[in-house]
Write a protein that binds this DNA or RNA. Sequence first.
RNA 1: GGGUUGGUAGCUCAAUGGUAGAGCAGUACCCUUUUAAGGUAUUGGUUCUGGGUUCGAGUCCCAGCCAACCCA
Length: 484
Amino acid sequence: MEPISELLAVRRQKLEGLRALGVDPFGGRFDVDGPVGEVRAAFVEGKPVRAAGRITAHRDMGKSQFLDISDFSGRMQIFLHAKEVGEDAFKVLKQLDIGDWIGVEGEYFVTKTGEPSIRVKTLTALSKALRPLPDKWHGVQDPEIKYRQRYLDLIANAESREVFRKRIEIVRRIRAFLGERGFLEVETPMMQGIAGGAAAEPFKTHHNALDMDLYLRIAPELYLKRLLVAGFTKVFELNRNFRNEGISRRHNPEFTMLEAYWAFANFETMAELVEEMICHLALEVCGGLVIEHRDAEGNVTRTIDLTRPWKRAKYADLIRGVIPDWYELDSAARRARCAGLGLDISHCEADFEVTQHVFEKLVEEKTINPLFVTHCPKELVPLARQNVQDDSVVDVYELVINGQEISPGYSELNDPDVQRARLEQQSGGETQKLDEDFLTALEYGMPPAGGIGIGIDRLVMMLTGAESIRDVILFPHMRAPGNG
RNA sequence: GGGUUGGUAGCUCAAUGGUAGAGCAGUACCCUUUUAAGGUAUUGGUUCUGGGUUCGAGUCCCAGCCAACCCA
């Protein structure tokens, strides 16, 4: 038990003060007309109103008391006058602090300064805050507190509330958008015997009753494709994936992914779908197709123009755009060229990895406006269909916006024999890693289909201007807190 | 994993190696329409942890913890 500071001791004294007045400091049901923001928006002069919220400001004028009550939806001023609420209410008020939850019943009115307010008739204590809130003006600045104690960030920082409000809205509208187009939302296993559908290190767990190792999924893909076999023609899942890899500004061990599959479509159909969907989201959630990212001072640091049609370009052409003779160079010459350009490719073993590194550093990171990268090397995407004219590339797009890969889209591979060969190649001969049931399902016949994945966290970053994935995930993963 | 920066009151931040401060919050009082309310007074510190140098360390050195950013 940490030592009780004076501030905490005072609050506990008030807690007992409330009990001494016969008031339960942690009350129960209190019927309200709606969240605070909606109550404020529904203002009608003189109309009776009930609301509840956390006290976030207190302006004590003696016999006149102004308080702000707030919740995630907004803020509203309430007004108490000694003669109107009576002595007992003022005794209770004396034991309340900024941070406490209260309920009020009264009527709407406008103050002399024009602020829509509630003239309180009865005041109800609903929950005592035993710890003081962060600074009312500066909010929470310490990033460690923002992430570890997100509730304080959300109480104190309007910008954070806005980011998460947008995230909630984006997810809601994605579901509606796909639902309106006939896509069925499903839930497939997050615990899988074989973590398939991507190349990533999984988290391992164990089922005791079955005495069986399981992995948290790194992708839902192989199960959604089983559903194509089953006869679903438009299907999607929007939920968490888990990858046991590093944590960074762009990576959280668990992240949210949309995957959607559309039978009889191909990667171009999917590109149109994702283009339409992201524009729809920008218009509805951000109010336009031009997204401005700003720094802490409000200066525009980046402008993303989502105006359609979005640019499309072949992978190889983009490489030639930055290094014109790249494909005329042999392996050694390419590595030498990278060194000359200051690119560290020492960790790249295969030639396609060297090229991919060039792509990431010189193309992807510099691409701010939407760009569909097509005709990608087949080594990068083992689950996609090979191109008919050129079997060294696959029929996919990789959508880059804001310097990040936001969404891949594939013409899905549905030949079970080719799929087996590609998976065996990817797993480096470790046949026990193959998802045999998935391959069996393909042998029953999967319709040709287009598929997309969209990293929801990165999409939200792009649409809100968040610089870190931690700013768009409510509770990002952190190391266990240390005290030295 | 490597580098850089940071960790001081509940919060936001100061402090040439020389008594650890301010604003907000808190406490007491004044004020019948305030909104970062105002006014007067005032409380509050294991300076992340552990060592070391020094007459003296928030400050310098070493190690560790946590975080942010960059690199891998």
